[in-house]
Write a protein that binds this DNA or RNA. Sequence first.
DNA 1: GCCGTTTTCGGCCCGACTGTTTTCAGTCG
Length: 570
Amino acid sequence: MSNDKVVDVLNEIADLLDIKDVQFKPRAYRRAAREIESLTQDLEDIHNEGKLEDIPSVGKNISEKITELLQTGQLEYLNDLRKEIPLDPDLLKVRNLGPKKAKKLWETLEVTTIDDLKEAIDSKEIRKLEGFGKKSEENIKKGLKIVQQTINKNKISDVLPIAREIKSELKSSGLFDELKLAGSIRRRKYLVGDIDILGTTENREKAMNYYSTIHKVKEVLSKGETKSSVRLKNGMRVDLRVVDSGSFGAATQYFTGSQEHNVRLRELAISQGYKLSEYGLFTESNEEKVAGREEEKIYEKLGLSRITPELREDRGEINAAKTGDLPTLVTRENIKGDLHCHSDRSGDGKITLSELAKEAQARDYEYLAVTDHADAPGIISGLTDNNIEEHLEEIRQINEQYDNLELLAGVEANIQPDGTFRLSDKSLSKLDLVIAGIHSNFDMPEGKMTTRLLRAINNKNVNIIAHPTGRKIGERGSFSVDWSEIFTKASSSNTVLEINASPPRFDLDDKLAKQALDQGVKLSIGTDAHQIHHLDYMEFGLYLARRGWSEKADILNTLSLPELKSWLKT
DNA sequence: GCCGTTTTCGGCCCGACTGTTTTCAGTCG
């Protein structure tokens, strides 16, 4: 059992205890969950060493529960709680619906699932309850909408590692000749549903049998000669399709999608006297197969240059492929540094400056910006006008130890409701790099929010706007902002907008990133790392950038250190 | 349920905001 799974269990217990109106225990479970979330070591290993209770906030009781989970995959205490309070864990993810209100809805309207909640809202029953009203009902409806968008979807950062593992497990069986991940996962969409895998084999029966027994499988949903579906222990669904080797390319093309892209491609095929299916590209006249073995050949035959899967969304890629105007997408090799990282000077940061430097070097970076939080209400410790010099000095000292790496002294400053900052302009100007982001007062009306952001963009010390839309996946929506106006201003003032690569955010997303680029805005990719393993989120930020049609020149952190420094000066 | 003393039991963050109600409960950050 993974650490994440244990974290989920502990948080669910906290939620259920909250509903029971138990005092203080929920907080204890949440604290323990948060500590485990930030561990870099496997709980299994810690358990084997008998050191569970060494984890802060984990005592005798929680350590026993973790042990039971690790050994049996189950927890009786949680099962009992669930029997007592049969509420779908998704319900409490709905914004504006906390434990008290959820309990009330359950007791009066028998709302226990997301579907029940939708029904209760549609029937306008909620507003009649004591303590609720029309506004509460509307707010819960808004929260429900955000949760519904992500239900049965998983983040690419969670799915891709698992998909890769399954693929390699299948490969190592020796039963498959070829294997490929397809579907939205191959297109690197930030939210994906099922995992799609395509394969070819000499022995379909044996291959499919093997597939249904791989170690992550919990149940087999269907099993046939050409398609088998399983559900994994973590709830994800994986479809494996076995196709003839001669159709492997066509099947890959078809099952990679997107559907909209495929529709366009088929239209194009028809207009050229072909018929395209998952079995191949055929001439319409005598049904002769002209491509199918290799995916690239299909595009080639249709007069198109190769379209990388990330672009297959029907956002103009087919026309661009016709005229040879496809972008040359930014790659990992182009990335020279990370522009948004937190050290342990940020209250919630866990990485020391020397670790940041070491990790940056391990990733072949030329630079890494240490952008600790500025002091603000609700943010414990942080950069202030008083400790800026100390911040600069500490970073200077680390830099003396490296020849081919430089830590940039930065800050993630809070854009206050009026668009100004708590840190003085004098302090901001001392830093190498200033990132500005909104961390409070999210619900301002569009006009005011746009003015707020414009004012921050106008500040000549501000280099980058962090996570511009404020959206948190499955949690809260984007700010109300006139994006066109923001993009125009950012472009003219040479202010960079960030692609925040942290999975809860993924912000800007691919669509807005493309829109920004179209309006001449430059982007940066930052991991917003608070822990060492967060630095690896760069991969997912890159996917967003690539899906947004970003080329090397569009991304600030493709600049070499000297180039970046001179850019920052101007 | 955990932690740290006050060393074995008491304390656990708290203010802003919203919507409801009429003085406050619930939720969020």
